[in-house]
Design a protein around this nucleic acid. Structure first.
Lengths: 237, 237
DNA sequence: CTCTACCTCGCTATTTATGGGGAGTTGCAT
DNA sequence: ATGCAACTCCCCATAAATAGCGAGGTAGAG
């Protein structure tokens, strides 16, 4: 039985398209005997990308009603590090409970378990299992399978990042030490004058570094340059 | 033998102080028969926090020489999602190779394996194994143990977040949708005029959002505000 | 030895951002 | 219904950043 899971992981690691992910998700659903398995990632402007066994109707409705904005699963996972059972989330708001009922009406089970996954540059994704089960049975299922599911979730995200080649493009420009130091100071909130004092150079020299870094980073202005330096990881605040 | 690992995980889950983490790290080192095990995170002001079996001399030297800024392990992991063997990183720069030699001189082994871990609000941490081994032996070690180590790394980070109450709520201010959109535009390199046009509002209104976001983020200037918004993950480029 | 990249400093003019004021609307929640 | 938070708009004066022109010294790579 465990070997079946290993097979699925191998299939996942060999996946080359979104359809392959879809297939693995369906097999995982059958393997774990749950209603649905879903992987999707959510970016900051609220777009969705992913695969799963939810019905097209439910996905359309979710998008149409803009449930992303009020879904306690999204919100809760965004603030949490650890996987979470849906029952433990905050369903106190009325719109959230209405969404919940709507979900049930669209074929979702009454239990859920979602694993938040974070990648470079603020990438954020969710891996979800949905099932119909009694509370204690579901808790037991989670206890038994959390570790395996975390590994699976990790592999799904790895694949998704490969598909979208997030970040991995290595053409990150190399800044000189002084340029990096200048960017760091600015990222910490120093003004040019303060940064120049910090680095023991004239403000004019500092400006040369900032300009140079700007050009290397292909940035429109200082804020842009600092933003790029941060998101490529060449500086850390 | 596997039970020993389960015991260690239980101990970790029951840990209440940093010293407990330290103890677990030492026992993990002995269990895996490696030179060093380290958990540390890089917080948003660039300080270091963590525990590990490195000598105090090496930790001091690392901080003193500001190796954080040029360490290929930090840089490489920041850009990656998956665990990485040190040998596969970019050691082409001379300062990086000097740091490497310095590390060896301070008792580190010639092989390393580091798992990047990301939590809410841009939290970023590393879990590292260091050892003396031949390349093929180390590759084999990694193959055998990556999954267990990923689970362990996850548990360490969970504990660290508990200790510091990083994510679970609060210290990251919630920006309004327009404030977030304004920050996003600026992070993408738009000038105020361009951003205002993009958002279909007057430049004055845009300024109100920027000011408001600045105050909420406790930032000194716009660049600082965008930097904080990026590094806490509330916006992405 | 030459060439390149880096580090350092100066000037002027223009554009842009910031820091104070106010003021009115909408919408959601208590 | 009252209040609070968000959204929208406006003016003015000052501070800061950007763009353009320079120059010279040092260290490493080919």
């Amino acid at each position: 039985m465990k070997n079946r899971l290993e097979d699925l992981l191998s299939t996942l690691q060999a996946a080359a398209t979104l359809e392959d992910l879809q297939t693995v998700l369906e097999e995982l659903r059958d393997y774990y005997k749950v209603e649905h398995t879903v992987y999707h990632w959510v970016n900051s402007v609220g777009e969705r990308y992913g695969a799963g066994t939810y019905s097209a109707e439910w996905v359309d409705r979710y998008l149409e009603k803009d449930y992303l904005r009020l879904d306690p699963v999204i919100f809760g996972c965004f603030q949490r590090f650890t996987p979470v059972s849906w029952k433990s989330l905050d369903w106190s708001s009325k719109p959230a409970r209405e969404m919940w009922q709507d979900a049930i009406d669209h074929g979702l089970g009454n239990q859920g378990f979602t694993i938040p996954i974070r990648g470079p540059n603020g990438q954020f994704a969710l891996f979800t299992m949905n099932a119909t089960a009694a509370d204690e049975d579901w808790d037991h299922f989670i206890d038994e399978n959390t570790r395996d599911l975390m590994i699976i979730a990790h592999e799904f995200n790895k694949k998704a990042l490969e598909f979208e080649q997030w970040g991995e493009d290595g053409n990150v420009p190399a800044l000189s030490p002084r340029e990096l130091a200048s960017m760091s100071c600015l990222a910490k909130g120093m003004s040019r004058a303060q940064a120049a004092a910090e680095l023991n150079i004239s403000e004019h020299t500092l400006r040369v570094y900032i300009e140079s870094a700007r050009h290397k980073l292909g940035a429109m202005n200082t804020t842009h340059a600092v933003a790029r330096a941060l998101s490529t990881g060449i500086i850390i605040i």
